[in-house]
Design a protein around this nucleic acid. Structure first.
Lengths: 379, 379
DNA sequence: TATATTGATTCAAACGTTTGAACACCAGCG
DNA sequence: CGCTGGTGTTCAAACGTTTGAATCAATATA
């Protein structure tokens, strides 16, 4: 057959097989403007041979010559995290429309892979970069290499405007407020909160939003009911963290009727922990998550949660890079922060508080043992 | 700065900045064997300039020249399906070790994207291809183009040995048997089965395995309790399908104490449907899934399921392509089928059957209405 | 002194494309 | 006959690398 040593069919193969020159073949197959001038018989002939030989143009050679790859590097902190997938959807949809190809890279929740992945993207000459960040995110100075090679970059899940990088980050404060408001409206007075691990930037503003709202309702959160997930490297740790925290919560015997968890997986862990203790959701205790990922939707009871507009965020990110690219490489615009609004999704895991708080059914019923009073929290 | 019109720092830039030739710079930076001969002062000088300018070699130019991309195309039918993610993990881990880069492509559960994605992979000159198939999988003749360009290919989730393609597919028959056996051991006599949509190849053997095992126990499955998911294009349809089927099941008033669902998402749908009718899992009815994906694990009650060794399957696939590549391009080995064994994972969604079957609590209790006797099913 | 040997560096061709410029042919026009 | 203007095709350079062969000192060997 027409195989070269490389094993791939090239223009030269087709040229030889058809009797025309490489140029002509190229012009025909790439449908260059000049191809109008090529005799239609020739065109057909060349095309048929190409089909027959199973020719596919070499994207590498093309990009080298054209000096543009039409490619956007997409660096996801962990492709197996259900949080990433709707974002990817959004990105891919938009990129496709714009005629760009995503170069998907998975950091697999490993810090060290972040750096090498970025390297890779640079070497692949992506025309732009989108980073989906999360707890596993190295403040790598490779980001400045990206700028040095003036490749536009957008980051989702982190505010890096200060470093001159376009950022997209949900309004966490509003999200926290939304959650607190919902429980407030249902009549909950004793709400437990599981904060995210310290290094997560989302954690603080969500907590602030919760506090602000609870305070507005004339209440406060009992400090004994505030927990924090441990710093983690482990990706599926959300669920485990929630489970363990729930156990702790119950063991502490400090009464509560609702839990706001840091994210959906954590919330699912809490549900499990409550179930272990014989507590039903939402009859005995309401549980809320954050993000709205698939497992939250398909669990029973389905999870009430604060939905991040993940798909839209992906679209937005893609639009921005593409825009930056088209705008022209030199044009340094001021980096902007986009703060989409989250949305309350009421499902089945929340309801009115129980008439009496039963804490642990199988041991001494410690109903309503009021905890010692504490000083109000600092604002 | 040292920016060319392309906006990327090249060897030439460094050559000019350092006063050495492009060759020398290349030899130093790519750490070619010859670089031993280069004066160490020169080496350092060149390296420092490269660092300073933020140089990254152009993977396109490199691959073009080296005639090898060290890249494996990975075509996933739907990256947002939790089924894919452990496979991807396995693939990526193994590829990384072997020094290959995955070129991840997402068909986003759209048939038409399959073709263009394969095109893309060919154009990107992947040294090999791994396809993760499922219901959305076009029997595209592009697969023969892949062979024409003699790129080794492995498919997961489909048996395409007949077409000369290495295949990896879980032993579905054994899986079905495992599930049936488990329920049998627990003492269930009236088992409902939700088969997969017709076009899914997994469906038939699973059903065969179930039947074989049930028959071995001297029982049979009531044909009234056999359902089939509709043919679907929609990806998240598993859950919906399970939910709807459960409703139908309950409405039919034909008694059952356990359900074997086609996959985990379907099983979660069933749980929801049962809950709607006030039935508890596993006290009133046991439910089993298949695959063992994340949502099954974090649901409460956690889902008893038949685990596919997805990560291992990914590893295996990667090893095979890499092996085929190393083996040499021409060497046409006979295509093989790898049939990994599934594993029963007992969790909380299954238990002994209830003493009395309560079907729908709020309407007339149709306990144990025995269905009309049927002829035994064909083996 | 002539000739290997080694060390440090460079030449130049090649990888598979694209594309501006050039070429060869033919028709029609003055 | 010399021009102009198509039409159909090819030349050759370029994209950024890599690499076998070549170059050129300087030093060691005969």
């Amino acid at each position: 057959m027409g195989q070269r040593k490389s094993g791939h069919v090239t223009l030269l193969d087709i040229a030889q097989a058809s009797g025309f020159s490489v140029s002509t073949v190229s012009i025909v197959l790439s449908e260059a403007p000049l191809s109008q001038n090529v005799a239609s018989t020739t065109r057909e002939h060349i095309r048929s041979i190409a089909r027959q030989l199973g020719y596919h143009p070499d994207a590498y050679a093309q990009s080298l010559r054209r000096r543009s790859t039409q490619t956007i590097g997409v660096l996801a902190f962990d492709l197996s995290d259900p949080f990433c997938t709707p974002i990817m959807r959004g990105i891919q949809g938009t990129l496709r429309e714009a005629g760009y190809l995503p170069l998907i890279v998975d950091a697999q929740a490993q810090r060290k892979l972040f750096d090498s992945s970025l390297h890779m993207i640079l070497e692949r000459r992506a025309d732009g970069v989108i980073v989906i960040a999360s707890w596993v995110f190295e403040e790598t100075n490779l980001l400045s290499d990206v700028k040095k090679n003036n490749v536009p970059i957008v980051i989702i899940g982190r505010d890096l405007v200060a470093r001159g990088i376009d950022s997209i980050l949900v309004d966490n404060e509003a999200g926290g407020a939304l959650a607190a408001r919902h429980l407030n409206d249902l009549g909950h007075k004793r709400i437990a909160v599981i904060r995210g691990p310290q290094e997560m930037v989302d954690s603080e503003p969500r907590w602030a939003g919760i506090q602000r709202t609870v305070a507005a309702g004339g209440l406060e959160i009992d400090p004994e009911l505030v927990f924090e997930l441990p710093s983690i490297a482990d990706p599926a740790s959300g669920f485990e963290g929630g489970l363990r925290t729930a156990r702790k919560m119950i063991a502490s015997r400090c009464p509560f009727t609702a839990v706001i968890a840091f994210d959906d997986l954590t919330a699912l862990g809490v549900v499990r922990g409550l179930a272990e203790a014989g507590l039903r959701v939402p009859q005995d205790c309401s549980v809320m998550g954050f993000d709205d990922v698939l497992p939250a939707e398909v669990a029973t009871p389905s999870m009430t949660t604060i939905r991040q507009p993940l798909t839209e965020m992906g679209c937005e990110a893609a639009q921005r890079v593409v825009h930056s690219i088209r705008k022209g490489r030199g044009k340094e615009e001021k980096a902007r922060l986009h703060k989409p609004f989250p949305e309350l999704v009421v499902r089945m895991s929340t309801g009115p508080p129980p008439a009496t708080i039963k804490l642990i059914q199988n041991s001494s019923p410690a109903e309503l043992r009021r905890p010692r009073r504490r000083a109000p929290l600092p604002v």
